[in-house]
Structures are given as structure tokens and as C-alpha cells.
Design a protein around this nucleic acid. Structure first.
Lengths: 134, 134
DNA sequence: TCAGTGATGATATAACATAACACCCCTCGT
DNA sequence: ACGAGGGGTGTTATGTTATATCATCACTGA
């Protein structure tokens, strides 16, 4: 049972709050170790602490992981149980979170072969953003 | 040496051949270091050597990378310049390569927001395969 | 021959991630 | 109040993935 509606804020522990607000301030993807550097001042000083909080935040839908970059980013929608794709500028690292319509999701799930029952879909689009094109 | 399934086969260096045939024998995704262990007997003994060959093989379209697993797999089609999605069994690691139709590709590229010009799309579907469902 | 070039070899280290255990503090049942 | 148990956290150590850098080798063409 983890699906949380948009308006319901899950309760966060101190570390989770600290790390989430760090990611929100950044507004761009950060590696776990970059986060660690920034929250040292708040008394968090070891990788497992960061990864624990990140995993919990991901379960709550408040943080997403960018596989292609080994990086984490705060959900642009606060809390969400929806499915998203990500567009990532390969130059500057800017990320746009793309909500997938029901039709999009159905289409993606439909790609799965008969042998495999799909559970989770990862879509990451790499490209160049407007600023970096110049 | 078995012949390529189809298409013109790009010329491969010794290391590239070694690593490609290792991946083909495996028929499942392998980490770079798992590959390293298996090709030590062939005289390849350092990570950069493996990564170099893998990068070249990926450029040639003969090997694909599974982002969600930090793993590599031989292209099921021998050589390809097409776009693929992957379905991965989260239990046993089995992978199915899914060719994307022009329409699929267009649909995925169409998800990209106006600000970002898409260049590369990664689609990975995690689920449970038939055997592991039982 | 010898400079240039591209592939490879080797060392070292960076970057990412988790296992395992210790500790503290709260709460709940008695 | 007490103590057992659990959740969150702190800490050490280590495992895993990836790359920077420079040395060396083999081949080619002037």
C-alpha cells in the first residue's frame, strides 16, 4: 500500500526532510554523493544514511531516480503515484518530468512481449535543451 | 567463429570479438566485471580494456546497455541500427529485445517537451517472465 | 629508418552502492 | 516505572561500476 494521492503529505523523518529539501533547492538531478556533501552541514555524513533516505523518498513517490545518470531528482509534482518519463539535456543535465497519459502508459506496457508481465517502465529521453543548442 | 545472422558485419578487433562472443554465449546480460572474469583466460585482464571494447561494440550496434542493471547484452539481431526497448525479468534477469516500429519511435520522441530536442530514447520494462511467475 | 596513428596494456583512482552491526529513543503492555 | 521491541539513525567496512592517464606495441607510408 503505497499509492498516495497528491494532497496527502506522507510523514518524513528528519533525514528524509533534509535530503528532500536539498533536492528541491537544487532543481536538478544530484548524485547521492553530491547530496551527501550538501547535507554534511546538517549532520548527515555517511553514504548509507543518504541512500536510505533516498530509497524511502522514492517509495513515497517524492524522489525519482534517473537511471542513465545515476542521479536523483525531487518529483516536480510534490508527491505522485503516477508514471513519468524524463527528458534530460545531455549537455547541462536539465531534466523535464513528462507525465504519461493513460494511453501512453498503455502503449508502453503493450510493448512487453507475451512472456513477460510488465510491472514497471522506465523511459528516459536524452537530447539537447534550447539553451545548449546555441 | 559463427557467421553473423544478417547484415554486413563490421570489422572487429581481437578484444571486441572476444567480448562479443562471450556476451553471445551468455545470452543474458552481464556486468562489465563479469565479462572481465570470463575473458581473463583470453588474456584480457583490466577493466578499461573491457569498457573500451563494450563502448565500441555499442557504437556499432552489436551490444546494448541495460541502464537499470548496469549490464550489457549482445544485440539479439546481430547488428542493428534500429531502436529497441527491453523487457527484463526482475527475478531471473532474462531479457527480451523489443524492436520499436516507426510509429512507436515517433510516439516516444513525441513525448519530449518543446525545450528539448530528443536524440536518444531508453525504454526498459521490468516485470516477471513466465517461468518466474510460477 | 622513423614519425604518425590507432589499438592495447597497465596502474591508479574516482564514483556509486550496500552489508552488517551498534546505538538511541520512543512507545506500548504490564 | 519498567523493560521489550521496533524504527530510525550512526558508523565501519567493503563491494561494485567506471574512467583518467600514461606506456607500449604493431602497422603504415614517406
Amino acid at each position: 500500500m503505497s499509492a498516495a494521492p497528491h494532497h496527502h503529505q506522507p510523514k518524513l523523518s528528519r533525514n528524509q526532510s533534509e535530503i528532500l529539501s536539498c533536492l528541491r533547492r537544487a532543481k536538478e538531478p544530484m548524485s547521492a554523493y553530491a547530496i551527501l556533501d550538501r547535507v554534511r552541514i546538517a549532520g548527515i555524513s555517511h553514504p548509507p544514511t543518504v541512500y536510505r533516505a533516498l530509497n524511502e523518498l522514492m517509495q513515497k513517490g517524492m524522489v525519482h531516480r534517473l537511471q542513465s545518470r545515476s542521479a536523483f531528482i525531487a518529483c516536480g509534482h510534490g508527491v505522485c503515484d503516477g508514471k513519468f518519463a524524463f527528458a534530460i539535456c545531455r549537455q547541462c543535465g536539465r531534466v523535464v518530468e513528462i507525465p504519461l497519459s493513460d494511453a501512453d502508459q498503455a502503449g508502453l506496457l503493450g510493448l512487453a512481449p507475451d512472456q513477460i508481465v510488465p510491472e514497471q517502465v522506465t523511459v528516459e529521453i536524452a537530447g539537447l535543451c534550447e539553451a545548449c543548442r546555441q
